[in-house]
Each structure stands twice: as structure tokens, then as C-alpha cells.
Amino acid sequence: MKCTTCFHQCEIPEGGRGFCRARICENGKIRPDNYGCLTSLTLDPIEKKPLYDFHSGSLILSAGSYGCNLRCPFCQNYEISQENLHGRSLYVSPEQLVEEAKKYVPAGNIGIAFTYNEPMIGWEYMRDTAKLAKENDLQVVVVTNGTASQEALEEILPYVDAFNIDLKGFTDPVYQSYAGSLEQVKAFIERAAKDAHVEITSLIVPGKNDSLDQMDQQAKWLASVDPDIPLHITRYFPRWKETEDPTDIEQMKQLQKVAENHLHRVYLGNV
């Protein structure tokens, strides 16, 4: 059977598992093996997503599962994103997660964020939970690499208030090195921005996506979608398989100036 959740279009045999390690073929159907399987559940500041222009100063209950359809060597959450943790996770139903979120509303929680691993590979759980969340007046946030099909996006879009979408570079070679697709991410951003609040994060990795020309092209394209889209230019630190030195802060400031030629809101992160 073919999985259509992302551009990989994995042909998964009966009992097999896709590239993301979370979608399987069972009884002739593709389904998310990580449905409701949480590895992380934390009450975070909304700015940590990062979302700076969406209910700033609030908290949001942040839920993560396991698996990812990219292979970024600097992944900060590789322990959950690059593993099959089905037997080492806690099952939390959509109803249970919504009730948990409601408990923290008096403490400043505004809703639920799907984050930490790549949530779009388990879009069915997001859809079911987000629909219940909206029925209970909770905000829904998705932190994603954006490498998902338009069909999967349309399933969740009616119930999502805000996205933070990773734009890991603006060339095909950058995305190919991460087993990704720039064109699919661009299409995801364009569609999401029509119906939800969208902010973009670009982790600047030396030698990968730190050129001023690449940032100029990226910011110009984002401005063509909406010049008010916030862009977070974020500092990289060595992690997992990536040993390159941390991003030079002065270079980040130069990238910020370039992006500000096209975008109204450009932030530096991890500095």
C-alpha cells in the first residue's frame, strides 16, 4: 500500500513501516502506529514554539509523539523523532488530552500544541484531538517541518489556529541532504497562511543555509505570501550527528538585516 501523507510516498508492505517510522500497513490499510502515543507532555510558554505574535505571554500544553519524515543531522529531539517508540510511550486519547489541557486553563494555558517530533505524520490524532479542542474553546497550535501533503493539511486545517513551520533552507540541495522537499514545504506554507496564523523558523546551520543570497531569496518569497509573516532566524548548536561550530551571531544579524528588506517582523532566536 502507498502512504500519501508526504512526498516520500512510501510503498509499505503488510506489517511494514514507512520512512517516518510511525506509519504502518495493517490489514491492507495505512494507519499511524503512533496514534495517541505520547512521549512528551509539557506546559510551555507560547514563545518557546516559537510563536511571538500569537497570544504572547500565554502558556500552551505541548504534546509530542515519535517519528519524523526528515533526517536532519542536528535534530534537537532525535531521541523521539528518529525512533520507533511504540512500546515506550503513553497512550493518551484525544478526549484525555483535551481534558488535561482544560485543567491548566486557570494557570494560563490557552490550548494544545502538537510539537517535539513531526506531528503531521500522525495527522489523524491531531485532527481528532483538535476537533475536540475547538469544541472546548481551546487554541490549537502545530509545530511542523511542513513536509506533508496538501491532503493531510486539509484534514487538520479547519481546526488549527496557528502553525510554526520550519523552513530549513531555500535550495533543493539543502532539503535533499535532509531527505526533504522544498517544494512541498513551500506549498504547505502558502496553504496554511490562507486560513491560520503562520510563523516561520529557520535554523541557520553554517555552510548549509547561512548565505545572504539564500536568505534574500527566502525572505522575498515569504513576503510574496505575506510580508507580515514573522520569521525566526535561530542559532544552531551542535547536536546529534552535526558537529559544526555554533552559528556566528554577527552572521545572524546580517541575515536579519537582509530579511528585513522584505519582511516586517524578523526575530533572532537562541542568541
Score class of each variant (00 low, 15 high):
I200M: 10
R191G: 01
P206S: 05
D213Q: 15
D161Y: 11
E190L: 11
A196E: 06
I110W: 09
I249Q: 06
P173G: 04
A193C: 11
P230K: 11
I229K: 11
S62R: 07
D226K: 12
P50E: 06
D44N: 13
A162S: 15
S56N: 10
N209E: 03
L182M: 04
K208P: 00
I30Q: 11
V141Y: 11
E83T: 08
R191E: 15
Q184A: 14
Q176S: 14
M126I: 15
S81Q: 00
L231Y: 11
Q214T: 02
K134P: 01
Y52I: 07
E135L: 10
I249D: 09
V160D: 06
T243R: 14
L255R: 03
G36V: 01
M126L: 15
C72F: 00
I233H: 09
S93I: 02
Y35E: 05
D166T: 03
V198M: 11
Q150F: 07
L59S: 13
V266K: 03
E79K: 12
H197I: 05
T5H: 12
D210M: 03
G28K: 13
L43S: 11
A219D: 01
K103H: 09
I249G: 03
G122M: 07
F19N: 08
A113Y: 05
F19L: 09
Q256E: 15
Y35K: 07
S224A: 14
V140H: 08
A63L: 06
L157K: 04
D44E: 14
A152N: 08
N69R: 04
C25Y: 08
G87V: 02
Y125S: 02
Y178R: 00
G15M: 05
L212R: 12
L61K: 08
H262Q: 11
A192R: 02
R265T: 10
A63P: 00
T129R: 07
Q251F: 00
K2G: 05
I200R: 12
S62E: 05
Q150E: 14
H262R: 10
L38F: 09
V205N: 07
A22P: 01
L132C: 02
A101F: 05
Q256F: 09
V105A: 10
V98S: 02
G28T: 07
L59H: 09
D245V: 03
P158F: 09
D166A: 13
